[in-house]
Design a protein around this nucleic acid. Structure first.
Lengths: 340, 340
DNA sequence: GGCATAATCGAAATCGATTTCGATAAAATA
DNA sequence: TATTTTATCGAAATCGATTTCGATTATGCC
C-alpha cells in the first residue's frame, strides 16, 4: 500500500537502516551477504527512494520551472518540447507555468516556484514587461535563471535569443534584393523587445538601401493573429497603397495576409511578395508556400536548459557563474512567396 | 543567501523553533507579543516555508504529473493549458512529460513520476498502446490516475473522453442529410481507440441510412498530417471516385484536403463537402471555413484535473474512490464546407 | 494564601534518506 | 600471545517543518 522505505527493509532483514542505505548505495563496509539480501529484499518490496526525503537532505529538487506567456502557441510549445527533452535527459523534471502576458501573474508564479525550491527557472517574459524587479528577486536569491526569446535586457542573468534585428534586416533585404521597394511591415505590439527589434531591423534595411521609410506602411498587430494579417492586407489592397511586399512579424499573420491576397486574386509573389517569421509548420504547406525566417524554438529550449545546468552545476560547486548570452542563428527559408 | 528557515528566525528572536512555527501557523498558545515579533522577523528575513520539508512531513507534494504523446500539437497544448490552470487554482503544480507515442517511454516516465511522489497522474496514452500493465502499477500503488482522450478501456481508473463514435456518427449523418452519398473517410492509424471509434461511427451512420459501405473510400492517415489530406484528396480526384464528401479524422487533414480541392478548382461544398474534427483555430479562417466537430481540449484538461482531485481528496480521507468516466459533449460547428 | 485554571513556552519525535563517527569482532601480524 | 588491521555494523545527527505532550509561570477564585 504505502511505498516501501529503508526502514521497512531494515525491519524485515533485522538490520539497521544505515546498513540498508549503505548496501543500496554501494558502500564498501557492507558484506556481500548483507548486500545481496538487501538488494533482494528491496527488489521484492519494490523499493524506490523517496525523492522528497532525498531532496530535503541534498537541498536539490532535480526540478526546474518554466514560465511562458502561453503554451497554446506553436513557438512556445516547441520551446517547451526542447526544454522537457533536455531536462529529462539530465534527470530533471519540468514544471510548466503560464503568465498569460501578465506581470502580476508572473510575480506570483515566481514566488510559487521559489517556494517549491526548484533548482532553476526558465522564463520568457510577458509582453507588458517593463519592471523586472521580480527577476531581481530570483537573481538575488541565487536561483539560476535563464531568459529566452522575450527577455529583459537589463537583467543580469543568462539569455538565449535570436538576433531579431538582424533576422528582420535580412528578411527585408531579401525583399529589396528581389526588387521590392514599397514594403509594408505588419509589426507586433509596441512593448515587447523582439517586436521592436524586428521593426528596427526592417527600418535599417530600408535605410541601408536608400528606400524612404513610409510610416503609413506600418501596421500594428496587437494580437498577432491571422485575422489581423487578413485585415491589413485587405486595407493595403483597397487603399491602393501600391505595396509590392509584406513583411509580417509572424507566419500566422503572413498566412492571414496570403489568405486575403489569394481571395482577391492578387498574384504572389508577382504582384506582392510576402515573407513571414518563425517557420510554422503550416507555412510550408499553404499555397503558395511561405518564405520565412526560421526561428529555432526547439533548439532554443534545449540551449536554455543547457545554460541553466551550467549555472546550476557551477553554483553546486560554489563557483561564481558569469551570465552568458547565446544568440541562436536564424536562416531564411526561401519558398514561393518571394522571388529568390 | 540561503533561504531563511524557522531556525534562523528562532535564533534571531532567541526562542524555540516550535514557537516560531506555532506563531506562524496561528496556534493559540503563543502570546500576541511573540507572534508579532515572529511575523515581523519572518517578513524581514523574507521567510517562506521550505515545501520540500513540508512535503516530507505531510506526505503530499502538491504536484501532479501529466504524460501526453507530444506537446507540439494544438489539441494537447490546449489540454495542458486546462490542466495547468485548474491545477494551479487548487494550489498544485504540474510536471509535463512526453511519451512520444512510445509505451516503453511511458513506462519510464511513470516510474519517474512515482519516484517523485506526485499526488496524482494524468495520462493520454501512446498510440501503440495495448499492454496497459504499467497502468496497473500506478493503480495498485494507489496513486490517483485519470486517463483522458486516448484511454485504455480495460484499466480500472477514471477517464475523461468524448464520445468519438457518436460525434463521428453525427458528423457523417450531417453529410448524409445534406445529400451526400459517396462519403470518403480519411481515418487515423489502426491502433488508437479514438481512431477506431470514429471509423465505427462513420460506418454506423452509413448503415443506419442504408448507404453501402465502400472500402475503397477509406484512406488511412498514418501520421495524421496536412500532406496526407492533400494526397488522398488528390487521389480521389484523379481516380474519378465520384466522391461527394470527405470526413477527415482531424482538421489538419481536412485542411490538407481543402488545399488540394481549392487548387484543383473543385468547388466546396458544391462538388465535395468536407467535415473535420477538433475545431482547430485555423479551421475557422481558411477558405472556405471548415465545418467541424468541436473537441473540447481545454475543458477536457480541466475536467481531468477536477476528477483527479476528487480522487486525491477521497484518498486523503481514507475513503475508497469509485472510478468515474466523464463523457464530454461535442458539437458540430457548421461553417462553409458543408450544406445546411 | 492556597489551589485551580489559563497562558506560554519548548523538548522531542516524526517524515525518509544519508553520512559521520565509533564500536565490535574477526583476522593478520609481530 | 599481544597488538594491529580489517571487516562489518549501527547510533546519532542532519535536512526543515510540524505536532504532541509536558513543563513552567502567571492569573483567577474562594
Amino acid at each position: 500500500m504505502k511505498p516501501t522505505t529503508l526502514k521497512d527493509i531494515a525491519i524485515k532483514l533485522n538490520i539497521s537502516v544505515t546498513t540498508v542505505s549503505k548496501a543500496l548505495k554501494g558502500y564498501s563496509d557492507v558484506s556481500k551477504t548483507t548486500r545481496a539480501a538487501v538488494f533482494e529484499q528491496a527488489e521484492k518490496m519494490n523499493y524506490s527512494p523517496n525523492s522528497v526525503a532525498v531532496n530535503l537532505r541534498t537541498r536539490q529538487t532535480k526540478t526546474i520551472g518554466a514560465i511562458i506567456p502561453t503554451i497554446t502557441h506553436h513557438f512556445f510549445s516547441k520551446v517547451i518540447d526542447g526544454i522537457i527533452e533536455e531536462a529529462e535527459k539530465n534527470g530533471y523534471l519540468v514544471i510548466i507555468l503560464q503568465s498569460e502576458e501578465s506581470v502580476k501573474q508572473e510575480k506570483k508564479l515566481i514566488k510559487l516556484l521559489m517556494n517549491k525550491r526548484v533548482d532553476g527557472i526558465l522564463m520568457s517574459l510577458a509582453a507588458d514587461n517593463d519592471t523586472s524587479k521580480h527577476l531581481k528577486k530570483v537573481i538575488d536569491a541565487k536561483i539560476p535563471l535563464v531568459l529566452f526569446d522575450k527577455i529583459s535586457k537589463i537583467s543580469n542573468c543568462s539569455k538565449v535569443v535570436i538576433n531579431d534585428r538582424e533576422a528582420s534586416y535580412n528578411a527585408t533585404t531579401l525583399l529589396i534584393n528581389s526588387g521590392c521597394r514599397r514594403i509594408a511591415h505588419f509589426r507586433g505590439p509596441l512593448n515587447p523587445q523582439n517586436s521592436i527589434d524586428r521593426y528596427l531591423g526592417y527600418r535599417k534595411a530600408l535605410e541601408d538601401n536608400n528606400i524612404e521609410f513610409d510610416r503609413s506602411l506600418i501596421y500594428t498587430c496587437k494580437n498577432v493573429t491571422f485575422e489581423e494579417g487578413y485585415k491589413f492586407a485587405k486595407e493595403i489592397h483597397e487603399q491602393n497603397k501600391d505595396v509590392d511586399a509584406i513583411f509580417a512579424i509572424t507566419d500566422l499573420v503572413a498566412v492571414g495576409a496570403i489568405a486575403y491576397l489569394n481571395k482577391a486574386g492578387i498574384k504572389i509573389p508577382d504582384e506582392i511578395s510576402v515573407i513571414g517569421f518563425s517557420n510554422w509548420f503550416m507555412s510550408a504547406v499553404i499555397s503558395p508556400p511561405l518564405t520565412t525566417v526560421e526561428q529555432p524554438g526547439y533548439k532554443m529550449g534545449k540551449k536554455a536548459v543547457k545554460l541553466l545546468f551550467e549555472e546550476i552545476n557551477s553554483s553546486n560547486k560554489g563557483i561564481d557563474f558569469e551570465p552568458k548570452t547565446i544568440v541562436l542563428k536564424t536562416k531564411i527559408i526561401k519558398r514561393k512567396t518571394t522571388f529568390s
